[in-house]
């Protein structure tokens, strides 16, 4: 379902070319839970940006859900993000002073392909919150009145609400203690096992990568053998 072929990425800063990815190729099948691991500076964030259609590769092809998405315009990328990708960020990025429901619902308002009624939106939002294991009595709480673990569950629910083909979790536990980390990662595992969600987890820690079924190691912009 996801296929990267010889992906290269160069950044040009003040006329100096820095090569970050030197030719990355891998495939991820539907329903897989894959960890992409590497030390900082290895290029895993760049891979995550390319996988999440936040950036385009300098060369190589990226096929997502049967469609070549390596060379899209800004807005075309945005449309695919809205329909096919759910993000979970390290720094949560919830809208402050906004209810849990409204935060989770937000991706739906940008999905132009699938316009929903208020009722449908609410149903989907509640379903996503349930899947993410967020307690129902706090749905109307404001996002800035939640604990770290709750916040990340809201973020996971937000990533689910659009029924994406791919969930991208970028260091989702980076700002959490080990106990809440475990809860969040178990939630992701559950989503993979019970709902068959395809999940890519970006991390630099072995014990977090261990929650995934398979790990891809990145070192110096290339895929490394274990």
């Amino acid at each position: 379902m996801i296929k990267l072929s010889n992906i290269k990425k160069d950044y040009v800063t003040d006329g100096v070319v820095t090569s970050v990815l030197h030719g990355i190729s891998f495939e991820i099948k539907e329903g897989e839970f894959v960890a992409i691991m590497g030390p900082s500076g290895s290029g895993k964030s760049t891979i995550m940006n390319i996988l999440g259609l936040l950036d385009i590769p300098t060369s190589g092809t990226y096929t997502l859900d049967g469609k070549d998405v390596s060379t899209l315009s800004d807005d075309e990328q945005a449309r695919i993000r809205a329909q096919k990708i759910g993000f979970v960020f390290q720094s949560f990025n919830l809208l402050p002073r906004t209810t849990v429901l409204r935060n989770v619902m937000m991706p739906l308002i940008y999905n132009k392909k699938n316009r929903l009624s208020n009722k449908e939106r609410e149903d989907k939002t509640k379903q996503a919150l349930n899947s993410a294991g967020f307690p129902e009595d706090r749905w109307e709480n404001l996002s800035n009145h939640l604990s770290g673990g709750q916040i990340q569950r809201v973020a996971i629910a937000r990533a689910l609400v659009n029924d994406p083909v791919l969930i991208l979790a970028d260091e989702p536990t980076g700002n959490l203690d080990s106990k809440t980390s475990d809860i969040v990662l178990k939630t992701l595992q559950d989503l993979n096992q019970k709902e068959g969600r395809t999940i890519i987890l970006i991390t630099h820690e072995h014990d977090i990568a261990a929650y995934a079924q398979r790990t891809i190691f990145i070192r110096d912009g290339l895929i490394a053998e274990k």
Partner: peptide, 16 residues
């Protein structure tokens, strides 16, 4: 800025 980044990441187009 971060809010705008988030909105774009989850699929907001420029015009949105």
């Amino acid at each position: 800025t971060r809010e705008i980044g988030l909105r774009k990441a989850i699929g907001a187009e420029r015009s949105d």
